[in-house]
Design a protein around this nucleic acid. Sequence first.
DNA 1: GTCTATAGTCGGATAGAC
DNA 2: GTCTATCCGACTATAGAC
Lengths: 223, 223
Amino acid sequence: MASIPTDSRLLDVAVDHFGRHGLDGASTRAIARDAGTPMSSITYHFGGKEGLYLATADHIAAQMRRQIAPTIERAAALCGAEGSIADARAAIHAMLGGMAMVMLHDQTEAMARFIVREQADPTAAFDRIYDGVMGSMLDRLGGLVQRVSANRLDRHSARVRAITLVGQVLVFRVARATVMAGMGWARIGAAETAIIVRTIAANLDAILDVIEAESRRMTGDHG
Amino acid sequence: MASIPTDSRLLDVAVDHFGRHGLDGASTRAIARDAGTPMSSITYHFGGKEGLYLATADHIAAQMRRQIAPTIERAAALCGAEGSIADARAAIHAMLGGMAMVMLHDQTEAMARFIVREQADPTAAFDRIYDGVMGSMLDRLGGLVQRVSANRLDRHSARVRAITLVGQVLVFRVARATVMAGMGWARIGAAETAIIVRTIAANLDAILDVIEAESRRMTGDHG
DNA sequence: GTCTATAGTCGGATAGAC
DNA sequence: GTCTATCCGACTATAGAC
């Protein structure tokens, strides 16, 4: 059997450790141990702890980009004035749904933790993730909101809206412990995910309905 | 001049240090230094690092409770079926507005960081904060949402809604770096706070309008 | 490329003077 | 109650064998 290369194994383990404990909190000893390699291999492959950290950020950004690229591209085509408002709304639903999967799913928990940590307390790795994925996602989401408003909302206002929409999803990762305690849940499985996604979609429609209605009123289009 | 007691000074510094670096990441040496006292005073007053950490959690819970007690109590009176829906809506606005102040204001940043960290990665301190404030806030907010739905929404669904509402506020603290980068802001001052609060209020009204309208339709009350 | 051994730093706990 | 001095463990980095 072809064994997985050391540097790749280190990166996978590092996502989890750095996500859980941060740059300072994580231990290169523990990462190396879990990857089944001596600590000095981190120096060899990545030049040290910091190098591994930055490489981990790139690793995550690449993985995220791969995962949401189709959604982003689809959204890009609908931001312009030529796309229909219904299509733009569908794209917003798709983007938030994708985010919900990343934030809720166990398999992507480590990645989500890393990203959340970097956003709350940015290091040099923040730029890599922001430039790699977060920035363009916010771009697209803001653009779609603008489109739904029939371009009545300016870029600035549309982005603040977009951020609040993301917040509805983000809270289920960031305040996970409070969610569990408050809901009396033991885990976020299929049933819980369904409830969350449905609630977010309902909120989203309520908000977009108002934005759409307001812009129709302002442009005098009552159809 | 009456000097501030050592243990009180330690607690104030500890909120900041633990909020920024977590239990493991923070250094008792650094905390003691910033409080202008030797490290061993932490052992004397709190029994060690862990003791200081738990005391810090209690300190924060008490401070939060003091700050939001009026809003909570006001909300409690409106959860029951006797309160008017308009009053319940006003109470929701007040609660989210209060949370926005805590999440956005520089003065409460250290506290917010501590709480967010504990929620994302709970330790023994989580229970103290949850039992102290978070739990009852979620209780009240869920109850108010139920009230707006004319008690059509069950407790469970109302709480999920409440959590998504909180998420809209929380995101501006948790994803602070992304917000700054995406909006091109240098800081969240009065102007930025105003935009955020206005947007959240608009979303909130959109969501509550739909909940209210749906429950009216279902109960056959078209007035 | 992989691994062992070691140097140097920093952390929390604690004993004991005052 | 306050502070100094010290202990011991865990960490990162690195030299060097293979």
